[in-house]
Amino acid sequence: MMTTTEYRNLAIGAALFILAACLPFVGGAYLLTIGVTIAMYTVLATSWALFSGPTHYISLATAAFFGLGTYTTGLGFEHLDYWLLVPLAAILGAALAAIVGVATLRLSGVYFVIFTLGLAELIRQLVTWGQNVSGQKGLYVLTDLTEVHIYWQLLVLAALVYLTGWLIGRSRLGFALRIIGDDEEVARHSGINTARAKVLLFMVSGAAAAATGAILAPRYIYIEPALAFTPMLSFQVVIMALLGGTGRLWGPVVGVIPFTFLWEAISASFPNQTTLLLGLCFLAIVFILPKGFVGLLTTIRTRMNAREAFS
């Protein structure tokens, strides 16, 4: 079944991961910090696009899943083996996604956006309230894990996300999602259980985001609701994924890398204007790059092909 192109893509992917895994040996501390940020957003944006790309539902729940993951580590690391926490967070994330999905994915996209936007806020308020009642403020996550460990863990997670995405793309589920993305009514009348397909994909992206949060918790050392559930995270993930383009599996990472550097520069030079610039990024994506870098490349390629055909 596998074609030569697919083997080639798989080989290229594997080579890139090995290359990325070598970063701690060649780069300094600063590069490693950037590396962690890029790896984190690669996981978040790619898993976001796995769901939102074909279904066109915009999820703003990333922060909710991410926070759930950080709190899983924060509350559990003294009681459970650390290596159990990340899969546990993934399971919790998938479960939360399943509940949210069943409640909202039958409805129009607008309801879903609002629901997911409110979700992080809801959990944040509940956690804050719980902490007020119990008299405890934040959580200390003290482990002997270093930045390098976190980086490698994120890379493994990213590889898993890509592998999952690739497998889904080759499966009936992937084909079903493409049909749903094109015309949901046709999908239903062709015999596709549209609700189930959407919920399954949302669970994948929820699990990935929760696992990311669980991996990153030791980096923060001290976690509190405002940090773990920051809505900014959800918005940045949306921007990066759309900037890269959601039509291809490799699309989001093309957005993540330049955006991370851009954002580092912006936060350093205009720390007070970040919100304003984030707004401009949204507008730029809609009006200048509606299909992301991937779309731009496809347009250029078709134009070049057309030119060859006519010459």
Binding site: R172, F175, A176, R178, I179, G181, D182, D183, E185, V186, A187, H189, S190, G191, I192
Partner: peptide, 28 residues
Amino acid sequence: ISRTFQLVRLLPSMTVLDNVRAGAVFGH
């Protein structure tokens, strides 16, 4: 039970073959 639509509904991002495959893969 399989149907066509009063106003033709195709899957716009796909090829002719993939459109037909949709019926073959998920139908009865």
